[in-house]
């Protein structure tokens, strides 16, 4: 039963990823695109966790944690770049 539920959840997450992708392409401004990227990586974490459950493997935890760390740093760096024109002050 759990396998079916996981596949269904992966379907829902794909719809969510497509919706964020729509916002990423449509824009209209840079902050919108950064926000879409931010959402995209959080949804990516969700997909990876679901895939790990589907394959019954504990290995995907590190990948999810790394994506969380990298995504946060890049979001803050790009937002900072928009505000000040440079990242490292």
């Amino acid at each position: 039963m759990l396998q079916t539920v996981i596949i269904f959840c992966l379907g829902i997450m794909s719809v969510a990823l497509i919706l964020t992708f729509v916002r990423l392409i449509k824009g209209p401004d840079l902050p919108d695109r950064i926000l879409a990227m931010d959402t995209l990586y959080i949804n990516g974490i969700a997909v990876i966790m679901l895939f790990g459950l589907y394959l019954d493997s504990n290995l995907f935890f590190e990948a999810a944690l790394l994506i969380a760390v990298m995504g946060f740093v890049s979001t803050v760096a790009i937002a900072k770049h928009l505000m000040r024109g440079n990242i490292i002050e």
């Binding site: 959840c9 829902i12 997450m13 969510a16 919706l19 964020t20 916002r23 959402t39 949804n43 969700a46």
Partner: peptide, 14 residues
């Protein structure tokens, strides 16, 4: 519940 909330977040984004 988790994936539905993630979907709602993305719907809000669009």
């Amino acid at each position: 519940i988790g994936s539905l909330f993630a979907l709602i977040g993305s719907i809000g984004l669009v």
